[in-house]
């Protein structure tokens, strides 16, 4: 499902995988003033809470999730001088080693891009409506609990 005219062109939520170098190149396209690109990719681990994980399923809240991600992205642009940014988050079923999320930020100088990428990920973790459900090798399914450490990571930006 591809929306030909997305409301938020810098946000993408989709089932399909993404190619990091393509995304990084697109982010820089047309900008001659960019001196730094910082990208973060989150991937599926094969172990959580001491248990082997076979499948990770991501659910979101269509409409609210896009809005929440765009708000976080704009907050980053307010705090740091940035030239471009992009957030991709996958939904649906994923497997160990799969890519889940990408944050890419471009700025004139590296400091701003590093900070902004870190900020966007920390806020995404605690503010964007996504939920993870994991399936263990024996077929047992469980919802992943929110982590206190993610809340603490967010508070470092206050």
């Amino acid at each position: 499902m591809v929306n030909p005219k997305p409301i938020f062109p810098h946000i993408r939520i989709c089932e399909e995988d993404f190619d990091l170098s393509t995304e990084a190149r697109n982010l820089r396209a047309g900008h001659k003033d960019i001196g730094a690109v910082v990208t973060f990719v989150g991937t599926v681990r094969d172990i959580n809470e001491g248990d082997e994980v076979s499948v990770l399923e991501l659910e979101h809240y269509p409409g609210m999730t896009e809005k929440a991600l765009e708000k976080i992205r704009l907050q980053a642009h307010e705090r740091w001088s940035l030239e471009a940014s992009r957030i991709i988050h996958r939904i649906g079923k994923m497997y160990p080693c799969d890519q889940i999320v990408m944050v890419a930020v471009a700025s004139r100088h590296r400091e701003n891009a590093f900070h902004a990428a870190h900020f966007i990920m920390d806020y995404l973790k605690t503010n964007a409506p996504f939920w993870k459900k994991e399936t263990l090798p024996d077929g047992f399914e469980r919802w992943v609990d929110a982590r206190v450490s993610d809340k603490e990571a967010e508070s470092r930006w206050n």
Partner: peptide, 10 residues
């Protein structure tokens, strides 16, 4: 109006 648990994306 939506009801849900704490978010766990990323």
């Amino acid at each position: 109006v939506a009801f849900f648990p704490p978010v766990t994306g990323g």
